[in-house]
Design a protein around this nucleic acid. Structure first.
Length: 326
DNA sequence: CCCGGATCCTGCTGGC
DNA sequence: TGCCAGCAGGATCCGG
């Protein structure tokens, strides 16, 4: 389940393998992963051929490959926006997406969806092809124009440009972005009339946080997932966001220590970092802080893990009281 | 505009 | 042994 740290590991691998290379051929084996490319799989493949990789950037869980020489850039989504310039291949891993580099004659993976043949680039990487493998196909690839952001700061990690791909333009700066405006984020979170975990998972407030790291940060902050954001002090919210950054930084370091930075195990065990998790996936196991068994609860059509002692439910879990009285 | 629930996908697991 | 419900969970869409 790729969240920010896993996606950043993939970004670094992609960058090392592809910067400077040119797409010789593109092959879409299943239409679904390119569904966001409204012009269709054929258009997607045709336009990529001849494109050259300039850099690989990331914001939250979105990756994009900045490309030179994409045919008919003026037709790409977002190209009509004022100041739009250039093109990018946008990659989202969804739940089960992987980027792999393989010899072209290697047996196709069971869930191989898209393959790109590359020419040039780093000499020691020559001859490999890029493969997008995705079992559940929640993720995908698309081509889009780069559009200006509201300010002149770099748009994301790995880019010096202030432009974002059109489909990424609504995504907030992520928890590890040095240009994240923490005070503004705290203000916006407190204005929301919703639970704190919902707010953490809202990619338009702060991006990159998924179910695992949300639960871990809430455990560290001793907060229940359903605490209304407006009832949490600014200092406590800053503390929570500090834990979000810490847990992701630690996870990224653990991913970086593994043998092959390109391999992210998204279907099986999380690998190195999962031994460090305090709450997520630990139903019935003792809380590392107080020993109380961790509880799993259904929340937002998924699971939340918390310590029932360290993370007490709010006194007024919802706003139901107010509306029913009124 | 804001909020929250439904939806899309496939494969695995566990209960009966 | 087979069948089916439940679960995994990203982003997006849509109704209130």
């Amino acid at each position: 389940m790729p969240e920010l740290p896993e996606v950043e590991v993939v970004r670094r691998g992609l960058s090392r393998w592809t910067v400077g290379s040119t797409v010789r051929a593109a092959d879409v084996l299943h239409p679904r992963p390119v569904r966001r490319h409204v012009a269709g799989p054929e258009d997607f493949a045709v336009r990529l051929v001849g494109a050259r990789v300039r850099e690989v950037a990331r914001r939250g869980k979105f990756l994009w490959v900045v490309l030179d020489g994409v045919a008919a850039e003026d037709d790409l989504p977002g190209a009509e926006r004022p100041g739009a310039e250039g093109a990018a291949l946008v990659v989202h891993l969804g739940m089960s997406g992987q980027i792999l580099f393989q010899p072209p004659d290697a047996a196709p993976e069971r869930h191989l969806r898209v393959r790109l043949q590359l020419d040039g680039g780093p000499p020691e990487r020559a001859g490999r092809e890029l493969r997008f493998v995705d079992q559940r196909m929640f993720g995908g690839l698309t081509l889009a124009a780069l559009v200006p952001t509201a300010d002149a700061l770099p748009a994301g990690i790995g880019t010096a440009s202030a432009a974002l791909p059109f489909p990424v333009a609504h995504i907030a700066r992520d928890a590890l972005d040095p240009h994240l405006d923490l005070a503004d984020l705290v203000r916006r979170m407190r204005r929301r009339r919703t639970g704190v975990k919902r707010a953490l998972l809202d990619q338009t407030l702060v991006s990159g946080v998924g179910n695992i790291y949300a639960d871990e940060a809430l455990w560290r902050a001793r907060l229940h997932y359903d605490r209304q954001t407006g009832t949490i002090s600014p200092a406590a919210l800053r503390g929570l966001l500090g834990h979000v950054g810490d847990v992701m930084t630690e996870a990224l370091a653990a991913g970086g220590t593994s043998f092959d930075a390109l391999y992210v195990n998204v279907n099986g065990e999380s690998g190195y970092f999962d031994r460090t998790l305090a709450a997520y996936g630990r139903e019935g196991l003792p809380c590392p802080r107080c020993g109380t068994p961790i509880r799993r609860e259904a929340f937002m059509n998924r699971s939340s893990y918390r310590c029932p002692r360290c993370q007490r439910p709010p006194r007024r879990p919802r706003e139901v009281l107010r509306s029913s009285v009124a």
